[in-house]
């Protein structure tokens, strides 16, 4: 099995770190794209702390060594060399487009978390309960937009999701020019000051995980 870590352009050298299961990193070139892979025994890879961090570490180490880089999702393998080459060629256009987008830019994450889970609304009828729930949802959406809009304006691209867990209000990923990172953090701090009842956390810079072609296109 061949395990994939990232697809890059202008990769200088491989980093001196091991891959998942301690395997040595290798590189393959397919139509001008650089693939970083390792051999993997067997057809299963559990998402443990060790394997997740091994994958993330390889990607982190590759970023400063590449002109542009797209991290691969954890836990994806290919039966043989031919299957990997075919898979890359089948997606080459989307990959090149994404590499152009992320080149020279970094991803920042923003998670906005409310202090406690919202209590289920108290209501004496099913209809009143539903209305109260809808009002909660609308309020979260409004809050999400209020946070996302000013951040989105500083970004080249962005994604966001709302209320995936009881506490989370909004989670966004923002692709930024390096020069804009400081202004972005300042804007996050302003949003935090404006919403003292929320925790507005800014993470990163991350490799551009959120701007790589996934399985939804």
């Amino acid at each position: 099995m061949i395990y994939l870590y990232a697809i890059a352009e202008e990769l200088a050298e491989l980093p001196p770190v091991a891959g998942v299961a301690g395997a040595a990193l290798e590189r393959r070139a397919v139509d001008g794209l650089e693939l970083v892979v390792s051999e993997l025994d067997g057809a299963a890879l559990e998402p443990t702390e060790e394997t997740l961090l091994a994958h993330a570490r390889v990607v982190d180490e590759l970023v400063p060594r590449a002109g542009a880089l797209l991290p691969a999702r954890f836990g994806r393998g290919f039966g043989d060399e031919g299957a990997l080459v075919d898979a890359v060629r089948g997606r080459a256009e989307a990959l090149r487009e994404a590499l152009r987008l992320v080149r020279g830019r970094v991803e920042l994450g923003v998670r906005v978390v409310a202090e406690g889970a919202e209590p289920a609304p108290e209501a004496d009828s099913g209809r009143a309960y539903m209305e109260a729930r809808l009002a909660q949802t609308a309020e979260r959406e409004r809050l999400a937009e209020e946070v996302h809009r000013p951040l989105e304006r500083l970004a080249r691209a962005s994604t966001r999701t709302v209320a995936a867990t009881p506490r989370l209000v909004v989670s966004g990923a923002y692709l930024l020019e390096l020069d804009d990172v400081e202004a972005f953090r300042t804007r996050v701090a302003e949003l935090q000051a404006r919403h003292p009842d929320l925790a507005v956390a800014c993470t990163g810079p991350w490799p551009a995980y959120s701007f790589a072609p996934g399985d939804d296109e």
């Binding site: 099995m1 697809i7 993997l40 991290p71 994806r76």
Partner: peptide
């Protein structure tokens, strides 16, 4: 949370790959 979410749920997916873990 952000790290795990990225590694498991984001990143390149190629057609024809074999899912080694149910992510």
């Amino acid at each position: 949370l952000e790290l795990v979410d990225r590694v498991l749920n984001k990143g390149v997916v190629l057609t024809g790959d074999i899912m080694l873990s149910v992510a």
